[in-house]
Write a protein that binds this DNA or RNA. Sequence first.
DNA 1: TATGAATGAGACTTCATTCAT
DNA 2: TATGAATGAAGTCTCATTCAT
Lengths: 197, 197, 197, 197
Amino acid sequence: MARALSTEKRTLIMEQAKKLFGEAGFAATSVSDVATACELPVGSIYTYFTNKEELVRAIVEEGWNDLRARLHEALATEESIEEKLELLVGTFFPELLADSDLITILLSEAVEFTGLEEKINELVELFEGILMPLIRSRPQFEEYRRSNLEAALMVYFLGTLEAVRITRASSLNVKPEDIIGFLRMTIQNVLGLKLNN
Amino acid sequence: MARALSTEKRTLIMEQAKKLFGEAGFAATSVSDVATACELPVGSIYTYFTNKEELVRAIVEEGWNDLRARLHEALATEESIEEKLELLVGTFFPELLADSDLITILLSEAVEFTGLEEKINELVELFEGILMPLIRSRPQFEEYRRSNLEAALMVYFLGTLEAVRITRASSLNVKPEDIIGFLRMTIQNVLGLKLNN
Amino acid sequence: MARALSTEKRTLIMEQAKKLFGEAGFAATSVSDVATACELPVGSIYTYFTNKEELVRAIVEEGWNDLRARLHEALATEESIEEKLELLVGTFFPELLADSDLITILLSEAVEFTGLEEKINELVELFEGILMPLIRSRPQFEEYRRSNLEAALMVYFLGTLEAVRITRASSLNVKPEDIIGFLRMTIQNVLGLKLNN
Amino acid sequence: MARALSTEKRTLIMEQAKKLFGEAGFAATSVSDVATACELPVGSIYTYFTNKEELVRAIVEEGWNDLRARLHEALATEESIEEKLELLVGTFFPELLADSDLITILLSEAVEFTGLEEKINELVELFEGILMPLIRSRPQFEEYRRSNLEAALMVYFLGTLEAVRITRASSLNVKPEDIIGFLRMTIQNVLGLKLNN
DNA sequence: TATGAATGAGACTTCATTCAT
DNA sequence: TATGAATGAAGTCTCATTCAT
């Protein structure tokens, strides 16, 4: 039998590519760059990925699936709205924000191969599902219901991601913790809930 | 005597390039593409701009300066916080959001040539300047002061821009008006101000 | 003891390769394409054939040998010139023309690996052998004898093959039957023989 | 003003490419090979031709157009069928057959980019136009009319071209003159005309 | 100043063949 | 014997920029 496709090699390629795409950008990183970083011949990249696009797609998809899987698993164990929101703000977002390469890739050029749109949609729907009972039960949220909860959630999510990307390689002194802090505060103030960190 | 460089040509180049960069992306648009769109020889691009980078830089800089100039001029005529905020939310942002090419360019790939960071900083500082008196005067905003007003503003601004970019070529049914609506509502609720549209 | 190479597999490979080489061309068909069409691993191709060239060679050689064997066998049972020619025109050529993949391979690119030249020579000699008695016996064929019977036969044979190849994937409404019809008519008119279909 | 596209360079590229495509085949000749033969950088090939396909296309088209133009011009000055046929057989075909690179290219792999089909069609129609009056006037050609004059002409034309191609790099002692001789003899015998060389 | 052909590095990708398993 | 991952040379093409005219 021939050598089996090496999971390690595949992982190595994805790691190195993610780093390079994140740091230098998708367009600015050549397949050769990736190969060099892996100390692998160029051809090998193509035994693991059909082409450059598939490579980004795989990076994003596997990164996101991983995050989502852990989120849904954790979510299943929590009952109250507060606990669920705390999970998002206390665990999911910190994890996501720590992965600035993934964020940069999600946000930049390759939107077409990256499906940012659908990922955001997913989060929006998840959040809506969590918040709906609350919103329905309180008349003062009427306005949110009528107006665009969707727009609001997009702004918060995308703003959070962008803030991390921009902040990253710049002199700005805003840190992921600050952003998480803001999100937590907003949830508490706007929804009138008390999260217990 | 040498003829002066034609302002018209320069403007034409910037317009066409902005359109192409916005629609297809900076990396995916060649200098020749720009020349073709202008019905101008490639060489001409280089008599007006040192290189491709300078061209984006100019597009972003002039677009932004224009926006900023009009904003500051208008701001000078308004006195109250409410009026100033209304100006931002009722005029500045709608104008900015209408320019989806500029937004796409600001946000994508070319961050390095684009100075998104400093533009956001500028807005943040402007906003802080407007809000500071209010925040100082009301103890319940204490929390905002300590925590990250900066982070908050970045999330709102960048989220707004990203939402427009993502929404643009996608099936999402969120529209610029919805986003503006959300911003206005947020200002009113969070700051306890009444904007009169 | 080592298992013998499977004849079935070898045949399968040759069939699929012939189809692909015929349809898409030798250069445009990769060894992997062949393997895929066979639902066989690439390596298998190389246990049956030294390399891609040997594969074409084998396809052509075996296809041709088969045709020739049947022709010679049949020819042995026929006595008269008329019967022999009828065999060629009524059986051999129709069979050959039905195999458009073989024809395409014989004629295209890979002439070097294909030995078209010698195949044509073979046919020419066979034909000359059949016709010589006739030609010698009739003074009006003098001209043919002096001039180039060889050239004539090459034109007829190669023209027939090319016509089938060209006709194949095109809008031309010439069909193999038409070509056979033309050959039969020509034999009758030029040689003054009556073939009885 | 910039340098004008050099006709000489374009011609040089076409000449070298024609030679290489003719000798080694289209697939076996790389664009780099062409560039090297021209002592030109690879990029330059692409300032004169969109891609490799366009290059063959241009070679074939210009070669064929040239031939055709001269043929039609000459044809216009001839009145009788005999003179017209003599022109074809005495001038056009010899010229075409002398250009074995063109013939090889026309016949091999690149049929798709080469339009052999339409070229043959053109010749067939031209010939039919010349012969029709003759055929209509003589009852013994009835058979030709019903059956496939088209098939016949295709076999003669394609056979002629193929014979030259095959003959070319092989040990066969059939020469273009022999083929032309055969064609002339056939015309005289079949049509009962006397061509005066 | 204006032009656009010229350049050549470098991008992505394919593929025949080998060889570890 | 069977497998199919590994390889790396080579192929086609693009493109920012220069510079002869």
